[in-house]
Amino acid sequence: MVTELNDIRLEAVGRRYGGHAIVDAVDLTLHPGELTAILGASGAGKSTLLRLIAGLEPVSSGAIRHGGTLWSDTRHTVPAEHRRVGLVFQDFALFPHLSAARNVAFGLAHLDRSEARKLSLSWLDRLGLSARAEAYPHELSGGEQQRVAIARALAPSPVALLMDEPFSGLDPERRDGVRETTLGLIAETGVPALLVTHQPEEALRHADKVAVMSGGKLLQCAAPHDAYLRPSDPVVAAALGPVSLLGMFPVSDGRVDTPLGPLAVPPSIQDGRVTMGLREGALSVDAGGTIEARIVGAALPGAVFRVPVSVGDLGLEAVLQDEEAALVAGATIALRLNPRRLLWFQS
């Protein structure tokens, strides 16, 4: 079945329940061939957003469209069974009384028996599960179950694929492998995909777009690079990676006095007050640096060596270029600031 792939547009979509806005005026567009990741804390409304797009719940305000078709608005909701949206659950939700092949074939009722079976088996094959086609869910490992769930969602050629933390139920060794395989497969199909996750690395690594939700609102949706370097909000910044927030400081004439010395702010920042965010790697140990700091503890080995320092009263972290450098706690060192890793938020 050839599926014509279209945009899925959410226009000021909201969902209220018991007087409380679980989703609040969200604007979002999913494009074919694109994977959008949604990050956010628990209760931010991510799962509800998925259910709205899937048609499992009606919207309280706004509209959801698929291409030219209206899916949901305040007056009318196209039922979930008519949308052909694929949804992969965190706990797989496989049908326990059906084999893997039958599970995958469940959404293929419009085909005749043998066609459906052939298609089901070919999908299982693409996910490396041909040998397990006749096994029942309780006989499969977590990773295998997840792959069956994905095959099941993709087999009916859906117009969109929604995934609700699909990899968090897997043990870490398997997670990367399964994720690579499945996300690669999804990209092949070109289906607009939405991935809800609470792991920033997952989002930054695989997604074409990254969106952050908090308190029901969609704070920002942008390419990973942009979102990481230019988050619109401290919450967004924190969602995408570790950040130290310092604030607030008064701005005048494009300059601000900070504990790290006087700095220039980007032109977008107006006079007033501003919060400063330091990304990992904003400060590095450099003999030629202008910031005076004191070493507070031992260096922490890792992809990048980090050493805790204090600048004035502030406890911060600096990156160490020379892994073998001898550092003495209490000694004074110089730090260099990388302005590209500085974030500025207007208060």
């Binding site: 899937a54 979930a80 939700a93 049908f95 099941r152 009916p156």
Partner: peptide
Amino acid sequence: QSVCTLDAARLLGAG
């Protein structure tokens, strides 16, 4: 029964 399996069925087109 887990509501999720019923939701999954809905999304796979089951009335």
